[in-house]
Design a protein around this nucleic acid. Structure first.
Lengths: 153, 153
DNA sequence: TATTGTTATACTCTATAACTATA
DNA sequence: TATAGTTATAGAGTATAACAATA
């Protein structure tokens, strides 16, 4: 390890936590969060959950809040508020299901679909700077390993 | 893809987001978060930041709030509140630096050190269930790849 | 009775501006 | 004038209980 003098203090000894995958995930997440905000979040005024919801609606027209909540891994009341905000911006709309009077269908408006497509196009390249140092094989492997971790339960 | 019938609805099509490393990180993080809460967070009543702070103090006695803030990647005011809480529980204490009247030293109390060591011991094995499906080589690789991502900026 | 969705609420997390005291 | 730390505050993220409408 090279000694760091520049900028003042050396970094603290993190050996009490850096054995944890959860710690490494947190640090990596900070990076992806930054590029997301820069390329999509700020330009399109979309928080990550809002972006994810639009992407889900793009591929699942008329999905119910219930199923959105399950996929987003988020309690139902929060999905209500989330949809409220997007309805307020004219990006999505709610329709009553014709087959089940309790259920709703959530649909993208024309504006919502246009925004969703633009945001998606941006998202395709935004992580490129982060992956620059990974070979194509490493990128594939990274995805596989993260997927294994995510489906471990 | 196998069709899923059990439990009711099939999962929504996530192909609009699952190309993103950030999305895979979020799902993996949900898993590590769960095992952390179960093994350390709930039993020791420590949120992840509190655990990390104790681990840092274990290896960096008397570190200043300023440097803790840098390492935790957290704004200074939040570190103040964080330390307040741990002081309130009798786990850490603040001392005025002898060489710089502005700076503080944050130290573990005897209770804090005992708790920190017990929590650390638990943390060493808590992720085992998540890594079960990964070979030793894959575990090493996972850490390397996450580290590359985390230091990409 | 069970399910879908909503309202209300609370606690944690993250971030910024304005202030005090030391240097 | 710059730095270390604090106070106050605001917004986003996460979670639960209680309720209305429909099945």
């Amino acid at each position: 390890m090279a000694t760091r003098e520049r900028g003042g203090a050396e970094p603290l000894d993190a050996s009490g936590v850096d054995h944890l995958v959860g710690f490494l995930l947190a640090i990596a997440t900070a990076q992806t969060r930054q590029v997301y905000l820069q390329s999509v979040g700020t330009p399109f005024d979309l928080r990550t959950v809002e972006f994810t919801l639009l992407m889900l609606l793009l591929k699942n027209r008329g999905a119910s809040p219930k199923r959105l909540a399950q996929t987003l891994n988020m309690p139902a009341p929060n999905v209500t508020v989330l949809i409220d905000r997007l309805v307020g911006r004219g990006l999505v709309e709610r329709r009553r299901s014709s087959t089940d009077g309790r259920a709703l269908q959530v649909l993208l408006t024309a504006d919502g679909e246009a925004l969703a497509r633009k945001a998606h196009a941006e998202s395709l390249s935004m992580e490129e700077p982060l992956l620059r140092r990974l070979s194509p094989g490493e990128r594939v492997l990274l995805r596989e390993l993260l997927l294994k971790l995510g489906t471990a339960a």
